[in-house]
C-alpha cells in the first residue's frame, strides 16, 4: 500500500493521530505533532500489509474504544501490524516533544502508589487483552485468512 497523499487522506490521517493520541496520553496532540506523525508513517511506510492488518487499523480508527483491546492483542499476537507500529510511532513522537514530556518522564511515587498503578494498569491490560482477542476472533473471515 502507498503512503497517504490526497487532502482527504491527510484529513483522515490527522484525525487518526488525534484519536490515537487521546488513547495514548488522554488528550489530543497538537496539529504540528499530528503532521509529524503523518510524515513518519510515510517515511517508514507504516501501512497495513494484509487484510487482517487493515481490518484492525480500520476498526481502531472507526471505533476508538477498540484501540486499547486491539493494541493489546496486536502487542501479543501481531506486533508487526500497522496499528501497533503506528501507535509506537506516535508514542515516540509524543515522547520527543516538550508538550508531552511529563506523560513519559519517569515518575517518583511511593511504594504503595507504584504497586497500585501496577495492579490497576495490569488488570486493565489483561481486560484489554481478553477483549482484543475476542475482537480478533470476531473479525470477518477474509481478515482472519
Amino acid at each position: 500500500m502507498t503512503a497517504p497523499t490526497s487532502s482527504a487522506t491527510t484529513t483522515a490521517g490527522l484525525r487518526e493521530a488525534e484519536v490515537f493520541s487521546r488513547y495514548l496520553v488522554g488528550r489530543e496532540a497538537s496539529p504540528a505533532l499530528c503532521e509529524r506523525y503523518l510524515r513518519a508513517i510515510s517515511v517508514l511506510n507504516a501501512n497495513p500489509c494484509d487484510a487482517g492488518d487493515a481490518w484492525a487499523l480500520g476498526m481502531a480508527i472507526r471505533w476508538p474504544w477498540t484501540i486499547g483491546p486491539l493494541d493489546a492483542a496486536c502487542a501479543l499476537r501481531h506486533p508487526g501490524w500497522a496499528l501497533r507500529r503506528r501507535l509506537v510511532l506516535l508514542s515516540a513522537i509524543l515522547e520527543a516533544s516538550t508538550a508531552h514530556t511529563d506523560d513519559y518522564m519517569p515518575q517518583r511515587r511511593g511504594v504503595g502508589s507504584v504497586i497500585a498503578v501496577c495492579v490497576v494498569e495490569g488488570v486493565a491490560a489483561v481486560v484489554n487483552l481478553a477483549m482484543g482477542m475476542l475482537l480478533l476472533a470476531s473479525a470477518p473471515r477474509e481478515a482472519r485468512a
Binding site: 488513547y23 495514548l24 493489546a72 498503578v117
Partner: peptide
Amino acid sequence: LKEVPLALANSRRIFQAL
C-alpha cells in the same frame, strides 16, 4: 514499551512508575 506485550496506554503508566 514497544517490547512489552501490553497495550501501550497501560504499559506507559506502569513503566513511568517503574
